[in-house]
Amino acid sequence: MGPAVCAGFPSPADDFLEEALGLPRWLVPNPPATFLWRVSGSSVIGAGIHDGDIVIVDRSAEPAHDDIVLAIVEGVASLKRYRINGNRATLSFDSPDLPATPIEDIAEATIWGVVTTSLRLHRPLVRGRR
């Protein structure tokens, strides 16, 4: 297959393309192990993470007590609060109304990464709208 061909008007910015836009190192210290995920739902709203937010997840970070982690629970990616109670690790929703579950009591659970940052994107203001 040959190189791609432009099927429209060339962009004046094409002369200035160098590399993909990257996030700053202070925000993402380990880029090869870091992923962005869009949040769906409100199970960790107590941590200030809302539906529609973007979370930065570092796969190389070891979870510590009280971290928010991305866990794969029975095949489903889910944000959970990671806690250590004595010598037992638990995953829970960040809500006092929902129970914590010891990881060993879950048929399939894997800690995929640690949430290092959450970002809330606001819809930009549009001229003429209030």
Results as ranks from 00 to 15, higher is better:
Glu104Trp: 04
Gly113Gln: 06
Val28Trp: 01
Ala61Pro: 01
Gly8Leu: 07
Ile56Ala: 11
Pro63Cys: 05
Ala77Met: 12
Pro3His: 05
Leu91Gly: 04
Pro29Val: 08
Glu108Gln: 15
Gly52Ile: 06
Gly46Leu: 10
Val76Phe: 07
Ile72Ala: 13
Leu70Met: 09
Ile49Ala: 06
Ile72Tyr: 00
Arg81Tyr: 05
Glu74Lys: 11
Ala109Asp: 07
Val115Asn: 00
Pro12Cys: 09
Arg127Pro: 09
Asp97Trp: 10
Cys6Met: 04
Pro3Asn: 07
Val57Gly: 02
Gly2Leu: 13
Leu121Phe: 08
Phe9Thr: 12
Ile103Ser: 00
Ser60Tyr: 03
Pro124Lys: 10
Leu119Ala: 04
Arg129Ile: 05
Ala47Trp: 05
Ala100Ile: 05
Pro12Ser: 07
Gly52Asn: 11
Leu125Ala: 13
Ala100Ser: 15
Ala33Pro: 10
Tyr82Met: 03
Leu119Cys: 11
Ile45Lys: 11
Pro31Cys: 05
Gly75Ile: 09
Leu17Val: 15
Ile106Phe: 05
Met1Ala: 13
Gly2Thr: 12
His65Glu: 09
Gly41Thr: 14
Ser11Tyr: 11
Ser95Thr: 03
Leu98Cys: 07
Glu108Tyr: 04
Thr34Asn: 04
Ser11Cys: 13
Gly86Tyr: 13
Leu27Thr: 06
Val69Thr: 07
Asp15Arg: 12
Pro24Cys: 06
Ala61Ser: 10
Val114Asn: 01
Asp67Arg: 03
Arg120Pro: 05
Asp51Pro: 09
Ile106Val: 15
Glu104Lys: 01
Leu21Gln: 11
Leu121Cys: 11
Asp94Ile: 00
Gly75Ala: 12
Thr110Cys: 07
Ala47Ser: 15
Pro24Thr: 04
Trp112Cys: 06
Ser118Trp: 06
Ala20Ser: 09
Leu27Asp: 02
Ala100Pro: 15
Ala61Met: 10
Glu62His: 07
